[in-house]
Design a protein around this nucleic acid. Structure first.
Length: 493
RNA sequence: GGGCCGCUAGCUCAAUGGAAGAGCAACUGACUCUUAAUCAGUAGGUUGCAGGUUCGAGUCCUGCGCGGCUCACCA
């Protein structure tokens, strides 16, 4: 802005006048005795007790969100983290000088007030202020009070304005916090150990995604931001931490959409001596536990549907799931060309899709994912797109892997982990060959350090990955991932 | 990256190709129980940016920027 906005100028002048009165507009601290919500509750208890003793004075602090001056009396609404309360100022009880100070206040300022709580004629619990303190002068105007802030771009870029203007936004993030706590409680109670593994990786493994690259000066090495926590957590399974989990930020250098942010939060857990059936049981129990903890129900509304998250969830094979929806049985087409012809025959555009695995992926994302509304486990995935999963006994082409879908989204991915070091090496080689063949950047990279760990012996293990952001979307009926990430990635202006 | 849509006062939104407006916020004044307070008045604009068409562009055209939805890729 080339020119200082008039509103800002006026507020700066008010700030100067406050200072001229000898008042510090940005004091170091303020002692408040109650939150707005606590003060209201305290007053209601006092009312119910019908005691003769006068109500004691309380000190509250918050941001002015509305002001209704009426000559020598003024009502303001102030808001703190607990909620809103009305404050009543009048010249009589505040003193003329104190009341004059109100003229220098604006909506958006943060103030402290002390006084007794009472009930107005219209019945609203209100604090009658006998003292006023300015705690922070705001120099910028807030969005309009009635419609709030609607500009989506501004809501994301200046999330604090969104939080101030749109109360429901704060509730989403409070719920997200309780989801995180519930996950930890669930896993901790089952004896899982929470760990933290490196974000900077020498090899970006554990998933099929393009990584972000960075550079370490002192090591003079290129490094990658992790695309998964999998390979480090498995090293810990080798080390004897039989039940581990990590909730961490993952970075994938892929497209941005309503379901994708370049950095997102994933839960990964690994349990020794378990297989994917055990993990399935755990996932349905965990998700319903979380829903009970944060919503007190396992029936959640999502996009007009009611999702029943209570266990057990339906289980079906991927083969059946796809065959049901489009009639193509990928197990009958073990070579790429044959499968491709089938997909083309039903009118799919697969010119850009390379490799049998990617073709099956396409079938999943076209037919299974968007059409699976109720929580469902889809099991037994093709080996080509599951290089870290253990083969299904008796099958050359399938692995013990499942994904959980709900609300048309993939929310979990899990498998019986491949612990045969020789086969794992071969699988890495297959991926390298695949990359050479189809030029796919999204293939698993050979990781000698991880193979060395496997060669020391990893017990049979069930592993799990859950997209936390999507789980929060599901529980809050939000349909854009940006609504559950405080500061979603946007292009700089 | 492609397609469609959007960008006007601090905020929420109007404005057939023909004088850029309203409400809230702000400012001045009145008002000691208001609560989307009320009443009277005032100020506030490079219509995202750059070109073009036209007697005349917020409006039509082109390019660019940012965003939303969507397709592709991914969790």
């Amino acid at each position: 802005m080339a020119r200082i906005d008039n509103i800002v100028k006026q507020r700066q002048e008010k700030l100067q006048r406050i200072r001229q009165r000898g008042i510090d507009p940005y004091p170091h601290r303020y002692h408040r005795t109650h939150s707005a919500k606590e003060a209201i509750a305290l007053f209601q208890r006092w009312e119910a007790a019908r005691e003769n003793a006068p109500f004691t004075e309380v000190s509250l602090a918050g941001r002015i969100v509305a002001s209704r001056p009426m000559g020598k009396a003024t009502f303001m609404d102030i808001r703190d983290g607990s909620g809103k309360i009305q404050v009543y100022f009048k010249s009589d009880s505040l003193g003329e000088e104190g009341y004059e100070l109100l003229r220098e206040l604006d909506i958006g300022d943060i103030i402290g007030v002390r006084g007794r709580v009472f009930r107005t004629r219209s019945g609203e619990v209100t604090l009658s202020a006998s003292h006023l303190s300015i705690l922070s002068k705001s120099l910028q105007p807030l969005p309009e009070k009635w419609h709030g802030l609607a500009d989506v771009e501004k809501r994301y870029r200046q999330r604090y304005l969104d939080l101030i203007s749109n109360e429901e936004v704060g509730r989403i993030f409070a719920l997200r916090s309780r989801v995180m706590a519930a996950i930890r409680r669930f896993l901790d109670e089952r004896g899982f150990v929470e760990v933290e593994t490196p974000v900077l990786h020498h090899t970006a493994g554990g998933a099929l995604a393009r990584p972000f690259t960075t550079y370490h000066q002192a090591l003079d090495q290129e490094l990658y931001l992790r695309i998964a926590t999998e390979l480090h957590l498995k090293r810990l399974i080798v080390g004897g931490l039989d039940k581990v989990y990590e909730i961490g930020r993952i970075f994938r250098n892929e497209g941005i959409s309503t379901k994708h942010n370049p950095e997102f939060t994933m839960l990964e857990s690994y349990e020794a001596y378990a297989d994917y059936q055990d993990v399935m049981n755990m996932v349905e129990e965990m998700v319903s536990f979380i829903a009970e903890e944060v919503l007190h129900t396992t029936k959640v509304s999502f996009g007009g549907d009611t999702l029943d998250l209570s266990p057990p969830w339906p289980r079906m094979t991927l083969r059946d799931a796809i065959t049901d929806k489009c009639g193509i049985d990928f197990e009958q087409h073990l070579d790429e060309d044959s499968l491709r012809r089938q997909m083309e025959a039903i009118g799919m555009d697969v010119v850009e899709v390379k490799g049998r695995g990617k073709l099956i992926d396409k079938l999943i994302s076209t037919f299974v994912e968007p059409n699976t509304i109720q929580p469902t486990f889809v099991m037994d995935y093709p080996i080509e797109i599951s290089p870290l999963a253990k083969r299904k006994p008796g099958s050359e082409s399938l692995v013990e892997r499942f994904e959980a879908f709900a609300g048309g989204m993939e929310i979990a991915n899990a498998f019986t982990e491949l612990n045969d070091p020789l086969e794992q090496r071969e699988r890495f080689k297959d991926q390298e060959r695949l990359r050479a063949l189809i030029g796919d950047e999204e293939t698993e990279r050979m990781d000698e350090d991880f193979l060395l760990a496997l060669e020391h012996g990893m017990p049979p293990t069930g592993g799990l990955g859950v997209g936390i952001d999507r789980l929060v979307m599901l529980l809050t009926d939000q349909h854009s991932i940006r609504e559950v990430i405080l500061f979603p990635q946007l292009r700089t202006r």
